Simulated scan of single mutants.
Amino acid sequence: MIVRIMGEGQLRLDDSHLSGLNRLDDELLAEVHSDDEDGFRRTLGALLDAVRSLGEPLPDDSLEPSELILPAPDATLAEVRAMLKDDGLIPG
Protein backbone atom coordinates (compact mmCIF):
# COMPACT_ATOMS: atom_id res chain seq x y z
CA MET A 1 0.00 0.00 0.00
CA ILE A 2 1.20 3.52 -0.79
CA VAL A 3 0.67 6.06 1.99
CA ARG A 4 1.10 9.81 1.59
CA ILE A 5 1.82 12.03 4.56
CA MET A 6 0.78 15.48 3.42
CA GLY A 7 3.73 17.82 3.11
CA GLU A 8 6.28 14.99 3.45
CA GLY A 9 5.93 12.44 0.69
CA GLN A 10 4.97 8.84 0.06
CA LEU A 11 5.90 5.57 1.72
CA ARG A 12 5.33 1.96 0.74
CA LEU A 13 3.76 0.13 3.68
CA ASP A 14 3.00 -3.57 3.98
CA ASP A 15 -0.70 -4.30 4.53
CA SER A 16 0.21 -6.43 7.56
CA HIS A 17 0.73 -3.21 9.56
CA LEU A 18 -2.84 -1.97 9.06
CA SER A 19 -4.31 -3.49 12.24
CA GLY A 20 -1.80 -1.66 14.45
CA LEU A 21 -2.33 1.58 12.56
CA ASN A 22 -6.10 1.15 12.84
CA ARG A 23 -5.82 1.06 16.65
CA LEU A 24 -4.09 4.45 16.57
CA ASP A 25 -6.63 5.69 14.06
CA ASP A 26 -9.49 4.65 16.37
CA GLU A 27 -7.86 6.59 19.24
CA LEU A 28 -7.42 9.61 17.01
CA LEU A 29 -11.07 9.47 15.92
CA ALA A 30 -12.24 9.39 19.55
CA GLU A 31 -9.97 12.30 20.47
CA VAL A 32 -11.21 14.39 17.55
CA HIS A 33 -14.84 13.69 18.49
CA SER A 34 -14.18 14.67 22.11
CA ASP A 35 -12.09 17.75 21.18
CA ASP A 36 -9.13 16.36 23.15
CA GLU A 37 -6.39 18.56 21.69
CA ASP A 38 -3.55 17.05 23.77
CA GLY A 39 -4.58 13.48 23.02
CA PHE A 40 -5.12 14.33 19.36
CA ARG A 41 -1.64 15.84 19.03
CA ARG A 42 -0.01 12.86 20.80
CA THR A 43 -1.89 10.22 18.78
CA LEU A 44 -1.43 11.95 15.43
CA GLY A 45 2.31 12.06 16.14
CA ALA A 46 2.32 8.37 17.09
CA LEU A 47 0.38 7.42 13.95
CA LEU A 48 2.71 9.35 11.65
CA ASP A 49 5.81 8.04 13.46
CA ALA A 50 4.53 4.47 13.04
CA VAL A 51 4.00 4.96 9.30
CA ARG A 52 7.45 6.52 8.94
CA SER A 53 9.18 3.72 10.86
CA LEU A 54 7.27 0.84 9.24
CA GLY A 55 7.18 2.24 5.72
CA GLU A 56 9.81 2.54 3.04
CA PRO A 57 10.06 6.07 1.58
CA LEU A 58 9.53 6.35 -2.14
CA PRO A 59 11.90 8.56 -4.16
CA ASP A 60 10.83 12.21 -4.33
CA ASP A 61 10.41 11.99 -8.11
CA SER A 62 8.08 8.99 -7.83
CA LEU A 63 4.36 9.70 -8.22
CA GLU A 64 2.47 6.57 -7.28
CA PRO A 65 -1.28 6.74 -6.59
CA SER A 66 -1.73 7.00 -2.82
CA GLU A 67 -4.16 4.52 -1.31
CA LEU A 68 -4.14 6.35 1.99
CA ILE A 69 -3.55 10.05 2.70
CA LEU A 70 -2.63 11.16 6.20
CA PRO A 71 -2.52 14.74 7.49
CA ALA A 72 0.67 16.72 7.97
CA PRO A 73 2.19 16.60 11.47
CA ASP A 74 1.14 20.20 12.12
CA ALA A 75 -2.46 19.71 10.99
CA THR A 76 -5.05 21.17 13.32
CA LEU A 77 -7.80 19.22 14.98
CA ALA A 78 -10.32 21.01 12.73
CA GLU A 79 -8.37 20.11 9.57
CA VAL A 80 -8.21 16.46 10.56
CA ARG A 81 -11.91 16.47 11.50
CA ALA A 82 -12.65 17.58 7.91
CA MET A 83 -10.58 14.66 6.55
CA LEU A 84 -12.21 11.99 8.72
CA LYS A 85 -14.66 9.44 7.46
CA ASP A 86 -16.99 7.41 9.68
CA ASP A 87 -14.24 4.86 10.36
CA GLY A 88 -11.36 7.36 10.70
CA LEU A 89 -8.48 8.15 8.37
CA ILE A 90 -7.65 4.50 7.71
CA PRO A 91 -10.43 2.35 6.26
CA GLY A 92 -11.19 -0.89 8.01
Rank of each mutant, 00 (worst) to 15 (best):
G45F: 05
F40Q: 01
H17I: 03
L68P: 02
V80Q: 03
R12G: 07
L63K: 14
L77A: 00
D74Q: 12
G20F: 05
P59D: 15
L13A: 06
N22D: 10
V32Y: 06
I90E: 08
E8C: 10
E67D: 12
F40N: 02
E27M: 14
G88P: 09
G55Y: 05
A78I: 02
E37C: 04
Q10C: 15
R52S: 02
H17C: 11
P57G: 07
N22P: 00
T43C: 03
G55E: 03
T43K: 01
L84W: 01
G20T: 00
L44V: 00
I2K: 08
D26L: 13
R12A: 14
D36T: 00
R4M: 13
L48Y: 04
M1T: 15
L63V: 15
D36E: 11
S66E: 11
L47I: 02
D61G: 12
L13N: 00
S16Q: 15
L21N: 02
L58F: 15
V80K: 01
L48T: 00
T76F: 05
D87T: 15
L77P: 00
E37I: 13
P91D: 09
V80I: 06
E31H: 14
P57I: 12
S19M: 13
L58P: 04
L13W: 04
A30T: 04
E8I: 02
T76L: 10
L77F: 01
P65Y: 09
A72Y: 05
R42F: 09
D25V: 00
V51W: 01
P65A: 07
R42A: 10
L11G: 05
D25W: 02
R4I: 14
G39I: 04
I5A: 11
S66D: 11
G9E: 00
D35G: 09
K85L: 12
R4F: 15
S66Y: 05
L84H: 02
S66K: 01
R42G: 01
A50V: 05
M6H: 13
D49M: 10
A46K: 15
L11E: 06
L29A: 13
E56L: 15
P91A: 11
S66M: 06
M6E: 14
A50Q: 13
L63Q: 14
R41Y: 06
L68G: 02
G88M: 08
E79Y: 04
L89W: 07
L28E: 09
I90K: 08
N22R: 15
A78T: 08
P59R: 12
A78M: 10
R42H: 12
G7W: 09
E67R: 11
L58T: 10
L58H: 04
P57K: 06
M83V: 02
E56I: 14
P65T: 06
P71A: 03
D36Y: 05
D25H: 05
S34W: 02
